[in-house]
Write a protein that binds this DNA or RNA. Structure first.
Lengths: 372, 372
DNA sequence: CGTTGGCAATCGCGCATTGAGAGTGCTAAT
DNA sequence: ATTAGCACTCTCAATGCGCGATTGCCAACG
């Protein structure tokens, strides 16, 4: 079981410096009211008025007093009013205050934890599949969009390579790192491929590269090892590029996202143009990748709300991200994208659970039950 | 260049028998009017009235006469009227008549043909990637949903297998058929895996299964070959299941679909519930698979319109499918799903081009330029 | 002085009404 | 058989109205 404050600690506070006045804590009553408004709005999706607030929650004060406090919170920028005769809705700042200080950490059910564990471990040894499964299960559990990047290989170590002859101009390359299956690719080459030579070269690599960090293997290293074997130059280039694109921060084919159809259910996306904008963003991958990349720099789950996000198109969304480690350093990240009105506590619990599972998996300790 | 009637021949007429009266050709003038209405409606999306018809097209008759004919076509079931004071819209039967008899075959631009060719061949030797690319390029060119199944392996022949040791309880299996890379999978086993034994067993398989049809390799055959090697029973079962699930009509992991976001642009899906219904259908895969499977039974492109489709949810959609061959028999299929108001001629041309490319590819003649 | 009940004022939303426009079907004339 | 004319029907967008929800303010209260 998590202690009440653990989640707060694990939520990165790096953005706090940019928040103009969030460090000034609100007085006790304002705090209670703001928290209740955010909670109620997240639950119902309807703007919250003073009547609802006093009827559904036992605040011990009258609607009139609540109104005064609401007006004050509105003025200070924690709440918005869609229009004069409507209730209040949290602003970015209101959500931020709620996430940083008010919300109670949520605990997952055993089924949920188990489902995450199973899904992540079902694809063990296939890095791409793992993150694919990870985003799949997260999108299904949260009914939001989940996305993830496969781990960079920079910290991983060469264990095995296999070069499979397909025909005179094509070979299949399978690269295995210390963590399991790292990469695989079919490549076409100009020159004629000799099946024997492929086996021979693979043997050579396997003997001499054993234990080398993948980032240290470049084209020259490969050429040196293959100088006795009649291996086409472009095949070597392909192998080198597999290594490079996985240790560098290359995007292509490394980003997985899932669950776009979930947005259809969210009432905030009834407007098709907004929906379209988000889908285009997914297609482009650039923005999501940037978010995940940012998340690599710090520890723990990070929440980005509305205009804190890099794109104006996402100003009505929030994103929760968390990095995961391979060995001792962050190597990849997972994120959840949904409307600002999302269940932050639950999503943070889920994504932390996911990170724990991934961390355990990439420590070679795939079957252990992680914390909590 | 295609001759004017070629497309007609290539459109399978198998469903004709079920069409109650489509075989009765309409008279010349009705034909012209029906064709124009369908053409105009596909182009604009607006119900077509007698005025538009006489103004935009040179029919040589007055609006009043056109109205009489429209009323008659309406009565015979070729046209529908959204409401009394609107123009006419094609019914399923109207579209069917148009597709079977009226529409002019379309020719693709050189860019389009080249784009398909490049995309399909860019992933040569990786069966899954090929169909994935195929549906990707089709969805992008048509702005509809494209879907495809990877070829069954029943007609393919064993060429090579590789068993790669990952750790004591995991191995990566790569299966290569005469057509190139056929399947790959990472499996977990209970018993301890020995790296030497894996290499040995793979060698054994490679020697003795060379040239065997994949569908003829069952668990017993594998056991017989591996009896001298200490290979865990569940590893053999995994290998057998890879063979089985690809030669049988297994669904899982074999269906690729792409381009769901394109539906957002279609005005007929402004209603979110309809959109949702279609997305759920995609998720389930069952219906799409069934459509493709049906398509394997006949030759050439097949169009299914509205209620001709198996599900009521698709009654406002149409689907174009085409099988492709491996060797001499149909082994897979590609489809395009969109609103009934789709550019049938263009989609048929595109999908036929795709089938031609796939056919050429799976004849080992990957680089040749297929018939337009 | 903080809190509260009362109350007028404001605004969005749903609903009925209305008028314009588009298209039809009918009929009588050619 | 074809056509022009015309009354009719129906949708759609705009308009206006009343209801309900909520607020902000004020005066009274402890």
């Amino acid at each position: 079981m998590e202690k009440p404050h653990e989640t707060d600690e694990r939520v990165s506070q790096t953005d706090k410096a940019f928040e103009q006045a969030a460090e000034q804590p609100l007085d006790r009553r304002k705090t209670a009211i703001l928290g209740t408004v955010v909670y109620e709005y997240i639950a119902t999706g309807e703007p919250v008025g003073s009547a609802t607030l006093t009827q559904k929650y036992n605040l011990g004060i009258s609607p009139a007093t609540v109104r005064a406090e609401l007006a004050s919170l509105d003025e200070e920028g924690y709440l918005d009013q869609p229009h004069t005769s409507a209730g209040r809705v949290p602003s970015d700042r209101g959500y931020r205050y709620y996430v940083d200080r008010l919300m109670l950490p949520e605990t997952l059910t055993a089924q949920e934890r188990e489902r995450i564990r199973l899904e992540v471990n079902s694809a063990s040894h296939q890095l791409d599949s793992i993150v694919d499964h990870a985003s799949h299960v997260l999108s299904s559990l949260t009914r939001n969009i989940a996305f993830a990047i496969a781990p960079r290989l920079s910290t991983q170590v060469f264990r095995h390579i296999e070069l499979i002859w397909l025909d005179d101009h094509a070979a299949h390359i399978v690269l295995v790192s210390n963590l399991g299956l790292a990469a695989q690719k079919t490549v076409n080459v100009q020159a004629d491929l000799d099946a024997e030579a492929l086996v021979h070269a693979a043997n050579n690599f396997n003997q001499h590269l054993q234990g080398t960090a993948l980032r240290d293997i470049d084209l020259e290293a490969l050429q040196r090892l293959a100088c006795q074997t009649p291996l086409p130059a472009d095949l070597l280039r392909h192998i080198a590029s597999i290594l490079a694109e996985h240790s560098e921060a290359g995007i292509e084919g490394r980003l997985f996202s899932e669950g776009a159809h979930n947005l259809l259910d969210q009432q905030e996306f009834r407007d098709l143009r907004k929906l379209r904008a988000i889908l285009d963003l997914l297609e482009e991958e650039q923005t999501l990748y940037q978010l995940l990349h940012r998340s690599l720099l710090a520890e723990g789950a990070k929440v980005s709300i509305g205009r804190e996000l890099p794109t104006a198109d996402m100003s009505e969304c929030s994103v929760v991200t968390v990095p995961y480690k391979v060995g001792d350093s962050n190597a990849g990240a997972v994120g959840i994208l949904g409307p600002r009105r999302m269940q932050y506590a639950r999503l943070i619990a889920l994504i932390n659970c996911m990170a724990d599972n991934l961390n355990a998996l990439f420590h070679g300790d795939a079957s252990s039950t992680p914390r909590e």
